[in-house]
């Protein structure tokens, strides 16, 4: 569904992503793991059209989307649950969700998608009129996911969805991602929580210093000595 070939992204002289290639199959959960500063967020933001690559190609269902602005990429069905949640703090929960539905592809289904999001996260319905900035971290993460789903995405890139959340909420969040995937959503999962994300993933890539150093099925990587040493502390 999504293919990245030899992608290079630089901030000035610093090359954050250095020749990354990866493939996301329709209906898969693909995990990208790596230490802080490995280039995971840069990779996600470049795919999303928020950063321009210096070199390389990004294709979605065979069509070249390299260098398209973010609003066009979103409208092709590539959603993002960004690092740090990125909700609109002074807008209400409902207004935040409406912003997710501003995309031309989702505008006409706003009511139905809103019902679906409220069903998935009843807490958001309870707090619909409240400013998003007053929500707890877990609730803001729900809002970020709900807002993304309002845009009717076919593929969602989750960037550190469990960062800063309590362990029980992390479990619920990952369960939600698994459920969404079962309903047909293709997922790219960037997680610090390597063990869990590898268990969830059908395919996984290890990113180090902007390069893919290992790839395979989630199970293969879980069994790999280098991964066990570097990321699982075994």
């Amino acid at each position: 569904m999504l293919t990245v070939e030899n992608l290079e992204v630089s901030y000035g002289d610093v090359r954050a992503v250095d020749g990354v290639s990866l493939e996301v199959a329709e209906g898969a959960i693909v995990a990208i793991v790596g230490a802080n500063g490995a280039g995971k967020t840069t990779l996600i933001r470049t795919i999303a059209g928020m950063l321009r690559p210096a070199r390389g190609r990004i294709t979605l269902r065979g069509a070249d989307i390299t260098g398209l602005p973010s609003h066009r990429v979103c409208n092709l069905g590539v959603g993002q649950v960004a690092e740090g949640r990125q909700v609109f703090p002074s807008l209400t929960v409902l207004e935040n969700l409406e912003m997710g539905a501003m995309l031309p592809r989702a505008r006409n289904d706003q009511a139905r998608n809103l019902d679906r999001v409220f069903m998935l996260f009843p807490k958001l319905a309870e707090r619909a009129g409240q400013a998003a900035g007053t929500l707890s971290g877990g609730e803001q993460q729900m809002l970020a996911i709900g807002r993304c789903l309002m845009g009717k995405p076919d593929l969602v890139m989750f960037d550190e969805p469990s960062l800063g959340l309590a362990p029980t909420i992390v479990q619920a969040m990952l369960q939600t991602i698994r459920d969404l995937n079962r309903e047909g959503l293709t997922c790219v999962l960037v997680e610090q929580n390597v063990a869990v994300s590898l268990k969830l993933a059908s395919r996984a890539y290890v990113l180090e210093n902007g390069r893919v150093t290992l790839s395979g099925t989630g199970e293969e990587l879980l069994a790999d000595d280098r991964v066990r040493q570097a990321y699982l502390g075994m």
């Binding site: 928020m50 602005p69 973010s70 609003h71 990429v73 807008l91 501003m102 995309l103």
Partner: peptide
Amino acid sequence: APLGKAIRACADNYTGALVVGLDVK
């Protein structure tokens, strides 16, 4: 107005506006 709310969203969180696919420019 939806567009008015979108403008407030841009002012509130620029990155967030890009993330949800608002045409910020």
